[in-house]
């Protein structure tokens, strides 16, 4: 029990109840899980982004370092575009795109507004803030840039799919071979495509902005397809997040020699 919030449910005229919430279920569990998984991912990805090693094991490259665009890169999966200062790892140049895409994603916004900012922590549970302006001001106004991160994310998806195709080679660079790592990179690329194509901005861009579907039958079909994926956006968001970290871990274990890649053919 907490004191009445004068600005909220304790405002004059409303039913006088001191409880912040009368919910008797475990409403705190969902935000707790969200915080735990996201913090674990942030810690792991930050460590890996600064590690600057063990991200390439022929023919596999970690998605955290792809596209690898500097001359300092291991492997040869992408054109090396420039020299960078030694203290900046190749990952730091590119992670802004997936980070920005997920940070401005409509699903993740719900998740972290609830879990980190407690705004609100759960439905019908009072938030602790005295003032609320939502996404009307800087910096949250920038959430409206989501579609641009979506476009950039599509380019990354193409590159990561290309990485998965390159993984159909053996360590000598010969084609038509496959190992468990190929399957891991391929699954990672498929999950990232599912996450991107189920995006709310994607749904709007392919057809949602239209008023007359009947005049644009192809875009209507595209919108219908994305609308079928869209209700699973949350699931794709979590699965792809966990799997991208797993993919990186798999490549790291191969690169450090901790495990060997089982080869299928």
């Amino acid at each position: 029990m907490t004191a009445l919030a004068p600005e909220g449910t304790g405002a004059p005229g409303r039913a006088r109840l001191a409880a912040r919430t009368l919910r008797s279920d475990r409403w705190w569990l969902q935000p707790l899980i969200t915080v735990s998984v996201l913090v674990a991912f942030i810690v792991y990805s930050t460590v890996r982004a600064f590690e600057n090693a063990n991200y390439f094991a022929e023919p596999y490259i970690s998605p955290f370092y792809s596209p690898c665009i500097t001359t300092a890169c291991e492997g040869n999966t992408f054109p090396e575009l420039f020299d960078g200062p030694a203290f900046l790892t190749p990952a730091l140049y590119i992670l802004i795109v997936p980070l920005g895409f997920r940070l401005t994603c409509y699903y993740y916004r719900k998740a972290y507004y609830r879990a980190f900012w407690l705004s609100p922590p759960a439905c019908a549970v009072a938030e602790p803030h005295a003032k609320y302006t939502g996404e009307t001001r800087f910096p949250l106004l920038f959430q409206n840039l989501h579609r641009y991160f979506f476009y950039a994310g599509l380019v990354f998806n193409v590159i990561l799919t290309y990485d998965a195709l390159l993984a159909f080679r053996n360590a000598e660079g010969e084609w038509f071979h496959m190992g468990l790592g190929t399957l891991v990179l391929l699954t990672n690329a498929v999950l990232l495509w599912l996450y991107s194509l189920s995006c709310h901005s994607c749904r709007h861009i392919v057809g949602g902005r239209l008023v007359h579907f009947s005049r644009h039958p192809v875009r209507y079909k595209a919108w219908t397809f994305v609308s079928k994926l869209n209700p699973k956006h949350m699931q794709y968001a979590w699965i792809s997040l966990v799997f991208v970290a797993f993919t990186d871990l798999y490549v790291r274990l191969l690169a450090t020699g901790a495990i060997d890649d089982p080869r299928f053919f």
């Binding site: 719900k110 507004y113 705004s119 939502g134």
Partner: peptide, 10 residues
């Protein structure tokens, strides 16, 4: 006030 909505889906 659409910008005030932070899409928490309640």
């Amino acid at each position: 006030g659409l910008g005030m909505c932070n899409i928490t889906k309640c």
